[in-house]
Amino acid sequence: MSSRENILKTVKGNQPEWRELPELKALGAAAGGVDLSGEALADGFVKVLEAIGGAAYVVSGYDRVGTILRELFPRVGRVVSGCPELGFGEAAGGYADPHELEDVGLAVLSAHFGVAENGACWITEDRMIERALPFIAQNLALVIRKKDVVANMHAAYEKIEAMGLGYGFATFIAGPSKTADIEQSLVLGAHGPKSMTVFLVDEEMSDAGFY
C-alpha cells in the first residue's frame, strides 16, 4: 500500500465520531473594538492601520492620490502602477520575469476592500501585475473606495464569496513588512515594503479644502 492509502486508512480508522460544524452567524456582531456603524468603519480602519505602522488618507480621487504620493516619495525611483487613473508610473504588465521588479521603489495598486478590525486590505493577483510586486517593492500604496471597508474577517470572507472572484493567489496586507525578532524591537521593513499607505477614495468628498 502507498503512504497515501496507509495514512487515509489509519486516519479513517482512528477519527472520532462525526461532530457537526458550528454556525458562524452569531460571530462578528462586534468587531475588534471597532464601531460597526456605517461612517465609523472607515475611521476604525484608519485608526487600526496607523497603530500597526501603516498610513491612511481619505481622498476625493486619484488626483489627490498622485499629489500625496509625489509629496511622500519625491525621490523613490521606479514607480509601477496598477491604477491607470494615477497618470504616472510605469505602464504596468508584460514582465517576462518577476525578478525585473527588484528595483521598484513604489508600487501603487488598487485593492478590493479593507477590514476595519485589523487594517488589512484584500487584493487578488489580477490587480498585482505580478504576484511578487506587493512584496518586492520598497514602498506600497493601495487604493480602495472608502465605502469598501467591512467590519471584520467574517464580513471579509462573505464579501470574497459574494464577489465570486477566481484567483490563483490573493492576500490580506496589513501594514508594512515588519519584524520584532531581535529582542522584540519592532522594525518596519523586514523583507518587503518599508511603508504601506492606503488611500480611501470618497467620491462625494469635496477637494475645496485642499487647495
Binding site: 485589523n118 504576484r131 484567483y167 493567489f169 490573493a170 490580506f172 496589513a174 518587503g192
Partner: peptide, 17 residues
C-alpha cells in the same frame, strides 16, 4: 501569538504561476 490584530501578510495560495 503576538497581540497584533492580524499578521502583515495572510497569503492565499491556490494555483501556481
Amino acid at each position: 501569538a503576538t497581540g497584533q490584530p492580524i499578521t502583515t501578510y495572510s497569503s492565499h495560495f491556490k494555483k501556481p504561476r
